[in-house]
């Protein structure tokens, strides 16, 4: 059951985007029942009481769905537990006396805003470049008019489960965003609704992605870091669709 442990924290502190940062060390006593973020909450409470500025770290839903949280914990995106976001990580995973190094997600296109908070808005730019199905409000036909094979719907869901946390980029030695981008593409390409714009979307999203991120070498680290265990197969689908998009006579196949 629960026990009290003491952990030695080494946390990246950086005042602002233009400032240089460094690691600071802290120790924190905590029960193993607590979540990792609650441990940081407590640390921050103590810092505040001592007149020191709290560590900036973001979180919102704290149930692993919004994708706001996310830091590197001992060199692993979202920490040691598989398929778990930072907010769902509990101190049970650590033992008394452990050193825990906490750093922001690193990639040139995820600039640090402060301490552990980074700007992941390039993901929004990737979506903006084509991560949608163009249907104006009110223009939709009855939902059951287009049957979707259950398998396709399930696969679309598997891909759509991505929470946009950025762990894949953080974990990738190349800072590539293939897993994120391919998940969104696969979500839409699996559904009949996504077909008309399929090739156009693949092209623009991949090319926007490449304006910000590195080139994939198929290491597979992203999948290991991904709290939603998004499948590497989607990356292969994206690569294939991209080449098809370039080669296809879209007008004749009735697609953009």
């Amino acid at each position: 059951m629960s026990e009290i442990i003491t952990v030695n924290l080494k946390i990246w502190r950086q005042e602002g985007p233009e400032k240089s940062g460094c690691f600071e060390e802290y120790t924190q006593k905590i029960t193993t029942e607590a979540s990792f973020l609650e441990m940081i909450d407590l640390l921050n409470e103590d810092l505040n009481n001592q007149g020191l500025e709290p560590v900036a770290i973001e979180s919102d839903c704290r149930e692993g769905i919004c994708g706001t949280c996310g830091v590197m914990i001992n060199g692993q995106a979202h920490g040691p537990r598989k398929a778990t976001t930072t907010c769902q990580l509990h101190m049970r995973e650590f033992s008394d006396g452990d050193e825990i190094v906490i750093e922001p997600f690193r990639a040139i296109s995820f600039p640090v805003i402060r301490d552990l908070v980074v700007d992941r808005s390039p993901f929004d730019q990737i979506i903006e470049s084509g991560g949608y199905i163009s249907v104006n409000t009110g223009a939709a036909s009855d939902a059951n008019l287009t049957p979707v094979p259950k398998e396709a719907a399930d696969q679309a869901f598997d891909a759509a489960a991505c929470i946009g946390c950025g762990a894949c980029v953080a974990a990738c030695p190349n800072s590539a965003a293939q897993l994120f981008t391919s998940a969104k593409l696969a979500h839409m390409a699996s559904l009949p609704q996504g077909q008309p714009e399929r090739w156009k979307r693949t092209e623009t999203m991949v090319e926007t992605m490449e304006e910000f991120f590195g080139s994939c070498t198929n290491h597979g680290e992203c999948h290991e870091a991904c709290p939603k265990e998004i499948n590497l197969d989607f990356i292969a689908f994206m690569n294939r669709d991209y080449m098809k998009a370039k080669v296809k006579n879209r007008a004749l196949s009735g697609q953009r």
């Binding site: 249907v135 009110g138 939902a143 259950k150 996504g194």
Partner: peptide, 21 residues
């Protein structure tokens, strides 16, 4: 209308084997 709209946007609602919602 909401269900129609969301489905058209690609929201992957649960489906039955026949492909319907």
């Amino acid at each position: 209308n909401i269900i129609d709209q969301a489905t058209a946007q690609g929201v992957p609602f649960a489906r039955e084997y026949g492909g319907l919602l």
